[in-house]
């Protein structure tokens, strides 16, 4: 219990810090994150610029704060896509287990699993060009089968329970039982899985932006900051360290929070961690 609470508190604090930084950046950042200052470029972290400056002399802290917005927005919307499409599909597949619809949904899931987010992003970018929206779609599509599968799995075992049989004897329809009995009983699982997918979304967004398939300039993003840092990592390591540590701490915070939530809500929850 103490371990669960520690995870929850530590993870929650880290996640809250990142969200706070993103929110504050809308009204205030230490410097204008687009302001160039070529003479003051590549400064290491110091009293003036807490996290140093980049190769154009831009303030790293300000860029990290604004970059958090991109990361959070992309990951959040992608998780939202996964939940709003995946959960109903999973509920339907479980309610109609063994029917052709279940078969089609599950085969469709398997098929999407064969297209990692990056591959989807490559396809979309090749056709429509790069951008943050494409990153959202690519990560979101990959999230659909994740939520569909976990919802279906949990719902299937619930459908075997006697309280569902009792509801059926009371004449309730499959849709109504799914909404009234199944969904509330898988909600905890979805919250925990949602946290994990959120952290995976942050990682995926960073990766896509790093290879140029995500957010485009001038939208700041942690992944692109790393791409910019690559050639200068030997002369100014902080260019790579700062965004990297920001990513690690955010993802770590979300994962700790997910683990803590899981142990706190129900230690027996089955969450796919992939």
């Amino acid at each position: 219990m103490s371990g669960a609470r520690r995870n929850l508190v530590l993870g929650g604090a880290l996640s809250a810090l990142v969200v706070l930084a993103a929110l504050v950046s809308f009204v205030w950042t230490p410097y204008d994150h687009t302001a160039l200052d070529i003479p003051g470029k590549l400064q290491p972290p110091g009293p003036e610029h807490w996290l140093g400056t980049d190769h154009f002399g831009r303030d790293m802290l300000s860029m990290i704060m604004v970059g958090a917005r991109t990361s959070i927005a992309v990951a959040l919307v992608a998780v939202g896509i996964g939940i709003t499409l995946g959960v109903p599909l999973g509920l339907a597949a479980a309610a109609l287990k063994g029917s052709w619809l279940d078969e089609v949904i599950m085969r469709g899931n398997d098929l999407i699993f064969a297209f990692p987010s990056l591959v989807i992003a490559i396809l979309i970018t090749a056709v429509f060009g790069a951008g943050a929206v494409n990153a959202i779609i690519a990560i979101g599509i990959f999230n659909i089968p994740v939520f569909a599968r976990i919802t279906r799995g949990a719902a299937l075992s619930l459908w075997q329970r006697e309280f569902i049989l009792a509801a059926r004897v009371s004449g309730k329809s499959a849709a109504r039982i799914s909404a009234e009995h199944i969904l509330p009983n898988v909600a905890n699982l979805l919250i925990v899985q949602g946290t994990i997918q959120f952290s995976l979304g942050i990682l995926a967004e960073a990766g896509l932006s790093y290879v140029g398939l995500g957010a485009q300039p001038p939208t700041p993003s942690w992944g692109r900051m790393l791409a910019d840092a690559q050639t200068m990592v030997s002369i100014a390591p902080h260019l790579a360290l700062v965004p990297g540590i920001a990513i690690v701490l955010t993802v770590l915070g979300l994962n700790l929070m997910g683990d803590g939530l899981r142990d706190w809500l129900d230690p027996r929850l089955r969450v796919a961690r992939t």
Binding site: L203, A206, L226, A240, I247, V248, V251, N255, R273
Partner: peptide, 8 residues
């Protein structure tokens, strides 16, 4: 390890 972006 789970929190590490592999490219970073």
């Amino acid at each position: 390890g789970v929190a590490l972006p592999n490219f970073w």
